[in-house]
Design a protein around this nucleic acid. Structure first.
Lengths: 250, 250
DNA sequence: CGGGCCCTTGAATTCTCTCAAACAATGTGG
DNA sequence: CCACATTGTTTGAGAGAATTCAAGGGCCCG
C-alpha cells in the first residue's frame, strides 16, 4: 500500500536544506554536512493520506521530514486508532525499523510532504564515523520519548478539555519553532477525527470539548486556520511548552 | 531529596554482572566489556520508595538497573500521578538528563534496588570510541519509545479491563525475559495504587476491574505473588508480547 | 446534482469517578 | 505481646463524564 519505493529524485541539496537556518535547529560542521549529503539517498514526495510506513513491516529506509505533516499511529483489532504523535519537519521517522526490524507503528502523511530518504544499512556507518551525529540520533529518540511521556500524562490524567487544550498548544508550539506560524495563527491541517484519535476520545465528545475551548476564547478555528491564545491554553491545560533549546536533525 | 550521592561502592564487577548470561541479553565483546567496566563509576543501592531521579532536576549520572523494580512517572499540579513505565533490570535510566539537561520525569524505586552508576560526561566518549555501544544506547531509547507507544494505545483506546489485562501481561512478559518468574508465577511488588496510576484509572475502579479479571481466571494475586494465565490475558487485552529477541544493555 | 467527508447537536446509555465506610495486613512503640 | 496507626483492599451508592446512536447541515468535488 505505501508507495515508499517511488522514484526518489534529488532536488534539494543538503546545503540548501529547508531546515537549515531555522533558528531552533543546530548547524552541521562541514564534515557532517558532507557525510549527511552522502548519506542522503534522495527525496520522496508523498501526497496527503499516503501511508509512509506500516506497523509490522520492515523498512529499508528512514526519513527526515523536510516539509509537511504526518502522524504516527497504532490500531486495535477492532479498528480503533490511537495517534501517538504528530510528525513535523525535522523529525526522523523509521528509526525503529532500522534498529529492530519491524515497525511498531504506522506513519501516514497528513498533508503533502517532502521526505529526505536515508538507508537503513548506512546507519551503522554514521555511528562508526560520526559520533556527533550518532549522538544527535539518540537525542532525537530521547526527545520523542519525552513527548510521549507528556502525552501519556495527558491522556491518563487530564480531563477531556485539558487534553484538548494541551494538544492544541503542543502542536502550535512545535509549529512555531519551525517557522510555520504567523503570530498566533497558523495553518492547521488536522480534522477533528485526528484530534479525537490523538486524545483518546470519541469524535462527538472531541467536538463538544473543542467548542468549549472556543467559547472560552482559548482558540478559534476556521477553514483550517487556527488562532491560539497561549495564556488561556496554558491555563486550561496546566502545561507550558519546553523553553525551546537548539536541536539537531539529520 | 534523592540520595543519589550516597557512597557508590563497587562490588559487582562487570565481568560478573547479574545481567550477563540472561538469555535475552546480548554479550559484550571483550573491548566493550573493558570499556563499560571503566565507564562504570560504582553502584548505588536504594531502598524501596527512594526517589532516584526527579523531574526538572539535572543529573550527573545515568544508571543501569541491576536488580529491583522502579517506575517512571510524571505529576500534574493537582497531585495526580501518571506512571509512564516500569523500570526493570537491564533498563537504562537518566538518559534524558544526559542529553538534554533536565529530567522530564521522575523515577522512584518500587523495591530495594541495585543500580550501576555511570557519569554523564563520559557518555560522549562512549559515542566517540564505541559505536556498537552507542548503537545499543539508541536501541534502548527506541525500545522505550516502543513501549510507550503501546501504553498510549492502551490508555487511549482500550477499555479499563483490557488495559488492566494488558498491563499485567506486559509486566509479566518483561519479568519472564529477566528470569524473575517461575512458571506462570512471580513476585509482584506493585500495589493497586501503582496499577491505577499506570492505567490512568481511579483506585476504586482499578480494584473492580482487577477482580473481574480474577473472576475470569485471567490472573490471581495473593501476598504479592501473581499468577497469570497468558492465554486469557492475551484474549482480554487484545495484545501479545513481542516475541523476545536478544537485547543489549550497558 | 449527488455523494462523500466533516462538523454539530440532542438524547439515552454506559462507563468511570467520588464519597463513604469497613476490613485486612503490617508495623511500631509502650 | 497488645494497642494503635498506617497502608492497602474491598464494596455500595450516587454523581459525573464520555460514549453511542441518530440525524441534520455545510462544503467540496466529480
Amino acid at each position: 500500500m505505501p508507495s515508499t519505493d517511488a522514484p526518489a529524485s534529488r532536488q534539494v541539496p543538503c546545503e540548501r536544506c529547508p531546515l537549515r537556518g531555522l533558528s531552533g535547529f543546530r548547524a552541521f560542521t562541514p564534515e557532517e554536512l558532507a557525510f549527511v549529503s552522502r548519506f542522503k539517498r534522495g527525496e520522496l514526495r508523498v501526497a496527503a493520506g499516503t501511508t509512509i510506513l506500516s506497523e509490522g513491516n520492515h523498512s529499508e529506509h528512514l526519513y527526515t521530514v523536510l516539509s509537511g505533516w504526518g502522524f504516527r499511529y497504532k490500531m486495535l483489532e477492532n479498528g480503533e486508532r490511537q495517534i501517538l504523535n504528530f510528525v513535523m519537519p525535522g523529525d526522523l521517522i523509521g528509526l525503529q525499523a532500522s534498529l529492530d526490524d519491524k515497525m511498531g507503528h504506522s506513519v501516514e502523511a497528513l498533508s503533502d510532504a517532502l521526505l529526505c530518504v536515508f538507508e537503513r544499512g548506512q546507519l551503522f556507518e554514521l555511528y562508526r564515523n560520526y559520533p556527533g551525529l550518532a549522538f544527535d540520533v539518540t537525542w532525537l529518540a530521547a526527545r520523542e520519548e519525552r513527548m510521549l511521556d507528556e502525552h501519556l500524562l495527558s491522556i491518563g490524567r487530564r480531563t477531556a478539555r485539558q487534553r484538548a487544550a494541551y494538544l492544541i498548544y503542543f502542536v502550535f508550539s512545535r509549529a512555531a519553532v519551525r517557522g510555520m506560524t504567523s503570530g498566533r495563527t497558523f495553518r492547521f491541517p488536522l480534522t477533528q477525527r485526528h484530534i479525537a484519535d490523538a486524545l483518546g476520545l470519541s469524535l462527538v465528545h472531541t467536538n463538544r470539548v473543542l467548542n468549549q475551548l472556543v467559547r472560552r476564547q482559548a482558540l478559534s478555528l476556521t477553514n483550517h486556520v487556527l488562532r491560539v491564545n497561549p495564556k488561556v491554553l496554558a491555563e486550561e491545560a496546566d502545561w507550558e511548552p519546553d523553553s525551546d533549546r537548539i536541536r539537531p536533525y539529520i
